[in-house]
Protein backbone atom coordinates (compact mmCIF):
# COMPACT_ATOMS: atom_id res chain seq x y z
CA UNK A 1 0.00 0.00 0.00
CA UNK A 2 1.59 3.25 -1.14
CA UNK A 3 1.07 6.33 0.92
CA UNK A 4 3.49 9.18 0.32
CA UNK A 5 3.02 10.49 3.82
CA UNK A 6 3.98 7.31 5.59
CA UNK A 7 7.24 6.98 7.46
CA UNK A 8 10.46 6.09 5.69
CA UNK A 9 11.78 2.83 7.15
CA UNK A 10 14.77 2.22 4.93
CA UNK A 11 16.78 4.65 2.88
CA UNK A 12 19.68 3.27 0.89
CA UNK A 13 21.88 5.63 -1.12
CA UNK A 14 24.59 4.66 -3.59
CA UNK A 15 25.41 1.46 -1.66
CA UNK A 16 28.54 -0.36 -2.74
CA UNK A 17 29.74 -3.63 -1.27
CA UNK A 18 32.33 -6.28 -1.98
CA UNK A 19 33.01 -9.89 -1.12
CA UNK A 20 36.60 -11.16 -1.17
CA UNK A 21 37.67 -7.85 -2.69
CA UNK A 22 35.27 -8.13 -5.64
CA UNK A 23 32.68 -5.37 -5.84
CA UNK A 24 29.21 -6.85 -6.20
CA UNK A 25 27.00 -3.87 -5.35
CA UNK A 26 27.90 -0.85 -7.45
CA UNK A 27 25.61 1.87 -6.23
CA UNK A 28 22.15 0.77 -5.05
CA UNK A 29 19.40 3.28 -4.23
CA UNK A 30 16.19 2.20 -2.52
CA UNK A 31 13.59 3.85 -0.32
CA UNK A 32 11.07 1.74 1.59
CA UNK A 33 8.19 3.34 3.48
CA UNK A 34 5.91 1.81 6.08
CA UNK A 35 3.05 -0.14 4.53
CA UNK A 36 4.88 -0.91 1.30
CA UNK A 37 5.71 -4.20 -0.36
CA UNK A 38 8.76 -4.23 -2.63
CA UNK A 39 10.08 -6.91 -4.91
CA UNK A 40 13.68 -6.99 -6.06
CA UNK A 41 14.11 -9.19 -9.09
CA UNK A 42 17.05 -10.12 -11.23
CA UNK A 43 19.04 -12.94 -12.67
CA UNK A 44 21.50 -14.99 -10.62
CA UNK A 45 24.58 -12.93 -9.85
CA UNK A 46 22.79 -9.60 -10.25
CA UNK A 47 23.54 -8.74 -6.60
CA UNK A 48 20.05 -9.09 -5.13
CA UNK A 49 20.96 -11.66 -2.47
CA UNK A 50 24.13 -9.75 -1.66
CA UNK A 51 21.97 -6.70 -1.07
CA UNK A 52 19.89 -8.52 1.57
CA UNK A 53 22.97 -9.88 3.31
CA UNK A 54 24.73 -6.52 3.37
CA UNK A 55 21.69 -4.87 4.92
CA UNK A 56 21.51 -7.48 7.71
CA UNK A 57 25.26 -7.47 8.36
CA UNK A 58 26.59 -10.78 7.07
CA UNK A 59 30.31 -10.85 7.96
CA UNK A 60 31.44 -12.06 4.53
CA UNK A 61 30.50 -8.74 2.90
CA UNK A 62 32.31 -5.43 3.17
CA UNK A 63 30.53 -2.14 2.63
CA UNK A 64 32.77 -0.05 0.39
CA UNK A 65 30.58 3.02 -0.11
CA UNK A 66 27.20 4.65 0.32
CA UNK A 67 24.76 4.76 3.21
CA UNK A 68 21.80 2.86 4.61
CA UNK A 69 19.52 4.43 7.18
CA UNK A 70 16.96 2.33 9.06
CA UNK A 71 14.39 4.56 10.72
CA UNK A 72 17.04 7.24 10.64
CA UNK A 73 19.81 5.12 12.21
CA UNK A 74 22.98 4.28 10.31
CA UNK A 75 22.67 0.52 9.77
CA UNK A 76 26.38 0.06 9.25
CA UNK A 77 27.12 1.35 12.74
CA UNK A 78 25.09 -1.57 14.15
CA UNK A 79 26.04 -5.19 14.76
CA UNK A 80 23.76 -7.79 13.13
CA UNK A 81 22.01 -8.45 16.46
CA UNK A 82 21.44 -4.71 16.98
CA UNK A 83 19.87 -4.46 13.53
CA UNK A 84 17.58 -7.34 14.46
CA UNK A 85 16.64 -5.64 17.71
CA UNK A 86 15.95 -2.42 15.81
CA UNK A 87 13.34 -4.33 13.81
CA UNK A 88 15.13 -5.63 10.72
CA UNK A 89 14.55 -9.26 9.77
CA UNK A 90 15.99 -11.56 7.14
CA UNK A 91 14.24 -14.74 6.05
CA UNK A 92 17.16 -16.82 4.84
CA UNK A 93 17.42 -18.33 1.40
CA UNK A 94 19.09 -21.39 2.93
CA UNK A 95 17.92 -21.70 6.57
CA UNK A 96 20.59 -23.34 8.75
CA UNK A 97 20.04 -26.47 10.78
CA UNK A 98 21.00 -26.23 14.46
CA UNK A 99 21.05 -29.67 16.08
CA UNK A 100 20.56 -29.55 19.83
CA UNK A 101 18.67 -26.23 19.94
CA UNK A 102 14.93 -26.69 19.97
CA UNK A 103 12.75 -24.48 17.84
CA UNK A 104 10.77 -23.35 20.86
CA UNK A 105 13.92 -22.48 22.85
CA UNK A 106 15.25 -20.40 19.97
CA UNK A 107 11.96 -18.59 19.43
CA UNK A 108 11.60 -17.79 23.13
CA UNK A 109 15.21 -16.65 23.47
CA UNK A 110 14.89 -14.38 20.44
CA UNK A 111 11.49 -13.08 21.53
CA UNK A 112 12.62 -12.32 25.07
CA UNK A 113 15.74 -10.60 23.79
CA UNK A 114 13.48 -8.23 21.86
CA UNK A 115 11.12 -7.80 24.81
CA UNK A 116 14.07 -6.72 26.94
CA UNK A 117 15.23 -4.36 24.20
CA UNK A 118 11.77 -2.78 24.12
CA UNK A 119 11.68 -2.47 27.92
CA UNK A 120 8.96 -5.11 28.22
CA UNK A 121 8.63 -8.16 30.47
CA UNK A 122 10.10 -11.45 29.35
CA UNK A 123 7.64 -14.30 28.93
CA UNK A 124 8.08 -17.54 30.84
CA UNK A 125 7.80 -20.81 28.91
CA UNK A 126 4.08 -21.21 29.63
CA UNK A 127 3.16 -17.67 28.61
CA UNK A 128 5.33 -17.94 25.55
CA UNK A 129 3.68 -21.18 24.56
CA UNK A 130 0.30 -19.43 24.41
CA UNK A 131 1.76 -16.81 22.10
CA UNK A 132 3.57 -19.22 19.85
CA UNK A 133 0.54 -21.51 19.44
CA UNK A 134 -1.27 -18.56 17.84
CA UNK A 135 1.69 -17.80 15.60
CA UNK A 136 1.88 -21.39 14.40
CA UNK A 137 -1.48 -20.90 12.70
CA UNK A 138 0.02 -18.16 10.53
CA UNK A 139 2.10 -20.74 8.69
CA UNK A 140 -0.14 -23.76 9.35
CA UNK A 141 2.60 -25.51 11.27
CA UNK A 142 2.12 -28.48 13.53
CA UNK A 143 2.97 -27.82 17.22
CA UNK A 144 5.32 -30.83 17.13
CA UNK A 145 7.76 -28.64 15.19
CA UNK A 146 8.40 -26.62 18.35
CA UNK A 147 10.06 -29.51 20.14
CA UNK A 148 12.35 -30.38 17.26
CA UNK A 149 15.84 -29.01 16.73
CA UNK A 150 15.87 -25.89 14.56
CA UNK A 151 15.36 -26.98 10.94
CA UNK A 152 16.94 -30.38 11.56
CA UNK A 153 15.33 -32.92 9.27
CA UNK A 154 12.86 -30.31 7.98
CA UNK A 155 11.86 -30.42 4.32
CA UNK A 156 12.68 -27.39 2.16
CA UNK A 157 9.14 -26.09 2.54
CA UNK A 158 9.12 -26.62 6.30
CA UNK A 159 12.34 -24.65 6.64
CA UNK A 160 10.86 -21.70 4.74
CA UNK A 161 7.70 -21.83 6.82
CA UNK A 162 9.87 -21.89 9.93
CA UNK A 163 11.52 -18.63 8.79
CA UNK A 164 8.09 -17.02 8.46
CA UNK A 165 7.15 -18.38 11.90
CA UNK A 166 10.17 -16.55 13.31
CA UNK A 167 9.02 -13.42 11.49
CA UNK A 168 5.56 -13.84 12.99
CA UNK A 169 6.98 -14.12 16.51
CA UNK A 170 9.48 -11.27 16.19
CA UNK A 171 7.14 -8.84 14.35
CA UNK A 172 9.87 -6.87 12.55
CA UNK A 173 9.37 -3.40 11.08
CA UNK A 174 11.10 -4.46 7.87
CA UNK A 175 11.35 -8.05 6.69
CA UNK A 176 13.60 -9.03 3.82
CA UNK A 177 12.58 -12.34 2.28
CA UNK A 178 15.54 -13.76 0.40
CA UNK A 179 14.31 -16.18 -2.30
CA UNK A 180 11.67 -17.42 0.10
CA UNK A 181 9.83 -18.95 -2.87
CA UNK A 182 12.72 -21.10 -4.06
CA UNK A 183 12.22 -24.81 -3.60
CA UNK A 184 8.55 -24.47 -2.63
CA UNK A 185 5.76 -26.49 -4.18
CA UNK A 186 2.56 -24.65 -4.93
CA UNK A 187 0.86 -25.54 -1.62
CA UNK A 188 3.82 -24.47 0.46
CA UNK A 189 4.12 -21.28 -1.59
CA UNK A 190 0.51 -20.45 -0.85
CA UNK A 191 0.95 -21.11 2.87
CA UNK A 192 4.09 -18.97 3.07
CA UNK A 193 2.48 -16.16 1.07
CA UNK A 194 -0.69 -16.23 3.18
CA UNK A 195 1.48 -16.07 6.25
CA UNK A 196 3.37 -13.04 5.02
CA UNK A 197 0.19 -11.29 3.89
CA UNK A 198 -1.40 -11.79 7.29
CA UNK A 199 1.59 -10.12 8.92
CA UNK A 200 1.48 -6.97 6.78
CA UNK A 201 0.33 -3.82 8.55
CA UNK A 202 0.47 -0.10 7.69
CA UNK A 203 3.45 0.16 10.07
CA UNK A 204 5.73 -2.47 8.60
CA UNK A 205 7.13 -3.32 5.21
CA UNK A 206 8.41 -6.27 3.21
CA UNK A 207 11.16 -6.54 0.63
CA UNK A 208 11.02 -9.76 -1.39
CA UNK A 209 14.10 -10.83 -3.25
CA UNK A 210 13.14 -13.25 -5.98
CA UNK A 211 14.05 -14.61 -9.35
CA UNK A 212 10.54 -15.55 -10.41
CA UNK A 213 7.30 -13.75 -10.81
CA UNK A 214 5.10 -16.47 -9.32
CA UNK A 215 5.50 -15.40 -5.65
CA UNK A 216 4.20 -11.99 -6.71
CA UNK A 217 0.88 -13.55 -7.68
CA UNK A 218 0.36 -14.23 -3.99
CA UNK A 219 2.13 -11.32 -2.33
CA UNK A 220 1.32 -8.37 -4.54
CA UNK A 221 4.10 -5.78 -4.61
CA UNK A 222 3.66 -2.03 -4.72
CA UNK A 223 7.04 -1.67 -6.41
CA UNK A 224 9.10 -3.99 -8.53
CA UNK A 225 12.81 -3.27 -8.92
CA UNK A 226 15.08 -4.98 -11.39
CA UNK A 227 18.64 -5.43 -10.34
CA UNK A 228 21.48 -6.01 -12.74
CA UNK A 229 25.23 -5.68 -12.44
CA UNK A 230 24.96 -4.53 -8.84
CA UNK A 231 22.51 -1.68 -9.50
CA UNK A 232 18.76 -1.20 -9.64
CA UNK A 233 18.24 -0.59 -13.35
CA UNK A 234 14.48 -0.28 -13.52
CA UNK A 235 11.64 0.39 -11.07
CA UNK A 236 7.98 -0.03 -11.82
CA UNK A 237 4.69 -1.30 -10.47
CA UNK A 238 3.52 -4.89 -10.31
CA UNK A 239 3.00 -4.91 -14.10
CA UNK A 240 6.78 -4.78 -14.53
CA UNK A 241 6.99 -8.28 -13.05
CA UNK A 242 4.52 -9.55 -15.64
CA UNK A 243 6.51 -7.93 -18.38
CA UNK A 244 9.66 -9.65 -17.10
CA UNK A 245 7.82 -12.95 -17.08
CA UNK A 246 6.97 -12.42 -20.73
CA UNK A 247 10.11 -10.86 -22.08
CA UNK A 248 12.85 -12.14 -19.74
CA UNK A 249 15.59 -9.94 -18.37
CA UNK A 250 17.75 -9.39 -21.44
CA UNK A 251 16.05 -6.20 -22.65
CA UNK A 252 16.89 -4.49 -19.35
CA UNK A 253 20.47 -5.61 -18.99
CA UNK A 254 23.12 -2.93 -18.85
CA UNK A 255 25.84 -3.17 -21.43
CA UNK A 256 28.90 -4.78 -19.92
Amino acid sequence: MISKNSKVLLEVRNLKAAVDGIEILKGVDLTVRAGEVHAIMGINGSGKSTFSKVLTGHPDYTVTGGTALFEGRDLFELEPEQRARAGLFLAFQYPVEIPGVSNSALLRLAYNTLQTERGLEELDPLEFDDLVQEKLKVVEMDPSFLGRSVNEGFSGGEKKRNEILQMAVLEPRLAILDETDSGLDIDALRIVANGVNSLLTPDNAVVMVTHYQRLLNYIVPDYVHVMDGGRIVRTGGKELALELEERGYDWLRVAA
Binding site: P80, V96, G100, V101, T113, Q166
Partner: peptide, 27 residues
Protein backbone atom coordinates in the same frame (compact mmCIF):
# COMPACT_ATOMS: atom_id res chain seq x y z
CA UNK B 1 26.34 -19.49 9.21
CA UNK B 2 24.63 -20.66 12.39
CA UNK B 3 26.29 -17.83 14.30
CA UNK B 4 25.09 -15.21 11.82
CA UNK B 5 21.62 -16.71 11.80
CA UNK B 6 21.34 -16.45 15.60
CA UNK B 7 22.68 -12.89 15.59
CA UNK B 8 20.14 -11.99 12.93
CA UNK B 9 17.50 -13.11 15.42
CA UNK B 10 18.82 -10.64 17.99
CA UNK B 11 21.20 -12.81 20.06
CA UNK B 12 24.59 -11.34 20.94
CA UNK B 13 27.61 -13.12 19.51
CA UNK B 14 28.53 -14.38 22.98
CA UNK B 15 25.06 -15.70 23.64
CA UNK B 16 24.90 -17.32 20.22
CA UNK B 17 28.29 -18.98 20.68
CA UNK B 18 27.27 -20.30 24.09
CA UNK B 19 24.01 -21.64 22.73
CA UNK B 20 25.79 -23.47 19.91
CA UNK B 21 28.45 -24.83 22.28
CA UNK B 22 25.77 -25.99 24.67
CA UNK B 23 23.89 -27.68 21.86
CA UNK B 24 27.04 -29.50 20.77
CA UNK B 25 27.65 -30.73 24.32
CA UNK B 26 24.00 -31.52 25.00
CA UNK B 27 24.03 -34.41 22.56
Amino acid sequence: DALFFLKSRGLTGERARNLLTHAFAAE
